[in-house]
Amino acid sequence: MATLKELSAKKELFTGGHRLCSGCGIPPIVRLILRSTDSPIVATTATGCLEVGSTIYPYTAWRIPWIHSAFENAAATISGVETAYRALRKRGRIPDRDMKFIAFGGDGGTYDIGIQALSGALERGHDFLYVCYDNGGYMNTGIQRSSATPMAAATTTSPAGDVIPGKQNWRKDLTKIVVAHDIPYAAQASPHNWADLSKKAEKALKVKGAAFMNVMSPCPLGWYTKPEDSMKLAKLSVDTCYWPLYEVENGVLRVTYKPKEKRPFEEWLKPQGRFKHVFKPENAHLIEESQKRIDLEWQRLLDLDGKRV
């Protein structure tokens, strides 16, 4: 794995000057992933914050060939690119070199509207990496709930009122769904742990076949948090075991980080405005229920650690 010094010496492929919010989790995720290979990269991005924030004409933050597809089909678009590349290489029409294909999508474009295209691409086994930056909502259209939104969070379509205290459903475990496709590599990561994230990206880009990374992406706008707290919150999501860091490599699961001291879930909730209402006495059960579920999921992962899944 590359050292921090080596990583920093690499050419920046996702440049500054983009329009993503200060404190947004997406840019560090994209920058680290693009640095994790020395091969040329083609990327596609689903409709969303990353697309809108990095490409408004006449500017672009991308120093690589880049395609915006529609909202639901980033994985299908990259499938076409990767297949065409293989066909052209086979016929000797383009130089025979190793190329990497990456699709980026937010949780709306991945968990919800894009899951059909993602599942299809994983099943067909295209040689590509899909990266989901999961900020837990449709932030680009003004903070609506997605199936990645944590339970009880207030969004503009799951508002917290006197009767209904925010989102009523537990978030979808997309990583688990992806793992069920039996692809060579799948992982969960977080940008605060750059070493873990780059190592996973390096592996994901090295394997032959489909790879997937689900990356926690703090969103000051949608979480109602301070921009300077984003990395702290990313760390807390991991230290509370809400967002466990793990990978599944050729069917074997490995928890890549085990917090020395598991923090209570409410420590992650407390600084976030979208959870303000759960600290009212009448909503105490929401924190308890979430904590139970997190404990259960964390234990499940620990039980599977080192095992074939």
Partner: peptide, 10 residues
């Protein structure tokens, strides 16, 4: 959600 109709859903 889709701009510019999202306010109706909200």
């Amino acid at each position: 959600p889709i701009t510019p109709s999202t306010e109706i859903a909200e």
